[in-house]
């Protein structure tokens, strides 16, 4: 039994939503496991967190701390880390946990740096004990590592969607406090926001994605892919071979260093299925591969396949869809 502190962030990054995000509830489940019956402290930062705080007892928190400060109107990773590290000291917790999101990883890394402790990012499993043992994701999850955290206090984040959130139906007291912050803690903070030009189906959210790889051959080779995507109301994606050739922008790249997607249907045309590519489509419900090589690695990752030249197969599929719709 030991006390554990968990950072909880709110959905959309926008403080205004006031709802804890899924990945934070998953982190809270890991924090509960590490506490093994001890106190589970949750920390939410900023005014927007206050409304999220009330619900956290139902997800394993035994006490919720809400940090509010006039300077915390926008994300400031060092300030967040300072608040977490100070609270960890005050509470004397044995572990500090956070979600393995962009914000969670950068904040928890800074907590570890401040406290000069090791940091285990993106854990998929945690084993409590005097020495915490974790399993963590490498290579975007294509490889796992078991590691011991040799430190009096374990600092870690949880890999998104690998530890299930657990509803405990409990309730937790909420305390609001004003953290101490110096100018140095606020040197790095968001000072503005640029809206993206809207248009098309967003790759990250799309229900169907049609992707092209090196087999597409050129920028113009994407015309049939675009056409099929248009017919299906799908977003267009691509492999890294395509982006580094300059055929498509990096915003279209799917994979470990691109966008991670979870569509109902993923159609991969002329993509070999490298582990780093497949790391981005783990959440896809159904995968159709179109490839001229029946031995391409994607043949074991996909549910369905067509063996053939995508330059003729893809237009034939579009034509058959049209025929079915008009027929």
């Amino acid at each position: 039994m030991r006390a554990v502190l968990c950072l909880v962030t709110v959905a959309d990054g926008a403080a205004a939503s006031g709802v804890a995000d899924e990945v934070s509830l998953q982190a809270l489940a890991a924090a509960s496991a590490l506490a093994s019956g001890g106190a589970v402290h949750a920390l939410v930062i900023g005014e927007g967190g206050a409304s999220a705080a009330a619900d956290l007892g139902a997800w394993g928190a035994t006490q919720v701390h809400v940090a509010t400060h006039l300077a915390l109107t926008s994300f400031a990773p060092d300030a967040w880390a300072r608040i977490l590290a100070d609270l960890a000291d005050t509470l004397g917790v044995a572990a500090v946990v956070g979600p393995g999101s962009d914000a969670g990883n950068t904040v928890l890394a800074r907590v570890a740096a401040r406290l000069d402790l090791p940091f285990a990012a993106n854990c998929t499993a945690v084993v409590p004990g005097d020495t915490v043992v974790v399993t963590r994701a490498r290579w975007g999850g294509s490889l796992l590592e078991e590691a011991a955290i040799n430190a009096p206090r374990a600092i870690l984040t949880t890999q998104p969607h690998s530890i299930a959130k657990t509803s405990t139906g409990g309730s937790a007291a909420v305390v609001t406090f004003a953290p101490t912050l110096d100018d140095a803690d606020l040197a790095v903070r968001v000072v503005g926001h640029v809206e993206a030009a809207k248009g098309g189906v967003s790759l990250a959210e799309a229900k169907i994605v049609v992707s092209g790889g090196r087999g597409v051959g050129s920028t113009d080779g994407f015309a049939p892919i675009e056409e099929l995507a248009g017919l299906l109301g799908a977003a267009v994606g691509c492999s890294r071979a395509v982006t580094i050739s300059g055929w498509r922008p990096h915003t279209d790249q799917v994979g470990q260093t691109g966008t991670k997607i979870a569509p109902d249907l993923y159609i991969a045309c002329g993509i070999s299925g490298a582990t780093q590519h497949m790391a981005g489509v783990k959440g896809a419900k159904t995968i159709l591969a179109i490839n001229k090589d029946h031995e391409a690695p994607i043949m074991t990752g996909a549910d369905y396949a067509v063996i053939g030249d995508l330059a003729t197969v893809v237009p034939a599929i579009s034509a058959a869809i049209r025929a079915r719709r008009t027929g």
Binding site: P118, E145, L288, T300, A302, V306, V313
Partner: peptide, 22 residues
């Protein structure tokens, strides 16, 4: 952060159903 060992995650390495050629 002491590595104990690496593990290749199990994937359901089932072969795709081939819907046809060309």
């Amino acid at each position: 952060l002491a590595m104990i060992r690496l593990v290749v995650p199990q994937t359901s390495a089932t072969e795709a159903v081939v819907l046809g050629n060309g």
